[in-house]
């Protein structure tokens, strides 16, 4: 089966959200950091909060959400985004 790693927002670390228009601000209870997200990255983080996902799966979901094709460019964007989320401690490898 598919053994590419899955990522998730840690269920133990709460996120608080506020959205005003296109801007989303999220407070991360684990790190205590506050992040401003654009619509696409907010959507990505919500998708990773709902269940663990691979980069490929997340790309498919984002493509559907914005009505685009899940091409290589979007996959690279998603991978970069996930790497960034990981460095911020927003997501972790799912067990």
């Amino acid at each position: 089966m598919d053994d590419t790693p899955k990522w998730q927002v840690s269920p133990a670390l709460k996120l608080s959200w506020r959205t005003w228009g296109d801007d989303t601000v999220v407070y991360h209870h684990g790190s205590g950091d506050t992040h401003k997200l654009n619509p696409l990255s907010a959507q990505a983080l919500r998708l990773l909060q709902s269940q663990p996902r691979t980069a490929h799966d997340l790309t498919q979901q984002l493509a559907a959400a914005i009505g685009q094709v899940a091409d290589d460019q979007l996959l690279r964007y998603t991978e970069k985004l996930m790497d960034h989320f990981d460095q911020l401690g927003l997501i972790e490898p799912a067990a």
């Binding site: 506020r18 005003w20 228009g21 801007d23 989303t24 601000v25 506050t34 401003k36």
Partner: peptide, 11 residues
Amino acid sequence: IPKADALLYVA
């Protein structure tokens, strides 16, 4: 100014 920016500014 956008509210999200105001929030980050005061924070």
